[in-house]
Every structure is written in C-alpha cells, then in structure tokens.
C-alpha cells in the first residue's frame, strides 16, 4: 500500500483500506435490512407511492437506517471513486480536480439525504 501517490487523498493506505471494509460491512447489513423492510411494504400498496414512501421514511427506525445507509453508501462510493481516479487519471492537476468533484458529488447527495430525512423526522 505504501508509495501510492496520494495527491488529494490524505487518508493513509491502512486507514483507507479499513474505511472501505467497515463501510462495506455496514452496507451489507443495512441493505439486507432495506430489502426485508421493503418486502413488508411491497404487498398491497393502495395509496399513492409518494405518500407511502413518505410515511415509511417518517417512521423513526426506517429514517435512521435509511440515512445511515445513504451516508455509508456515499462514503464507500467516495473511497472507491478515489481509487478508480488514481488508477486512470494520471495528470496531477486533473487528478486533483477529479478528487474534488468526487468529494463534491458524494458530500452533496449524502448531505441532501440526511437533511431531507431530518426534516421529515421533524414532521415534514
């Protein structure tokens, strides 16, 4: 792991490896939960989908797990995207720009998810 170029990525090799694995384990559990939880709603949907979805997210445990899942997903995605960028984007300046964009993309949508779920928590 040593000797990587680490232009923008200031996470050390070991730290990166562990973050990748820990977020992966968390995602296996959370996605497993998501499928079980969704399969209980899937049958007999009568009211409009967006209302069903809203009521589902507003239940505290669902909202908490969904927020956690999306944060873990974008964190995991940022780490993976960083690895792909370092493998294929070789110019120093362009590499740095790509890392910035990857960070912006993941933080924006993770933040959007948390803020939205938090707002729904407060009663919409």
């Amino acid at each position: 792991m040593g000797g990587g170029r680490m232009v923008q990525q200031r996470i050390s090799g070991i730290g990166h490896w562990w973050q990748q694995r820990l977020t992966a384990v968390a995602l296996v559990v959370l996605i497993g939960w998501l499928f079980i939880a969704l399969s209980t709603v899937a049958g007999g949907v009568s009211s409009p989908l967006h209302e069903v979805a809203k009521n589902w997210v507003m239940r505290p445990f669902n909202g908490l797990c969904l927020a956690l899942m999306l944060v873990m997903a974008f964190w995991h995605g940022y780490l993976g995207l960083g690895t792909i960028i370092d493998d294929y984007v070789h110019g120093d300046a362009l590499n740095r720009v790509c890392h910035r964009l990857a960070w912006l993309w993941c933080v924006t949508f993770a933040g959007l998810s948390v803020v939205s779920i938090g707002f729904l928590y407060g009663g919409g």
Partner: peptide, 14 residues
C-alpha cells in the same frame, strides 16, 4: 443511481 434516492427524499421532504 444513489443520488436519485437522495433527490426523491429531498422532494418528499420539501
């Protein structure tokens, strides 16, 4: 695809 979920949550909330 994940941002589609985020954007839908944003719409649901706001």
């Amino acid at each position: 695809f994940a941002p589609v979920v985020s954007l839908f949550l944003f719409l649901l909330a706001f």
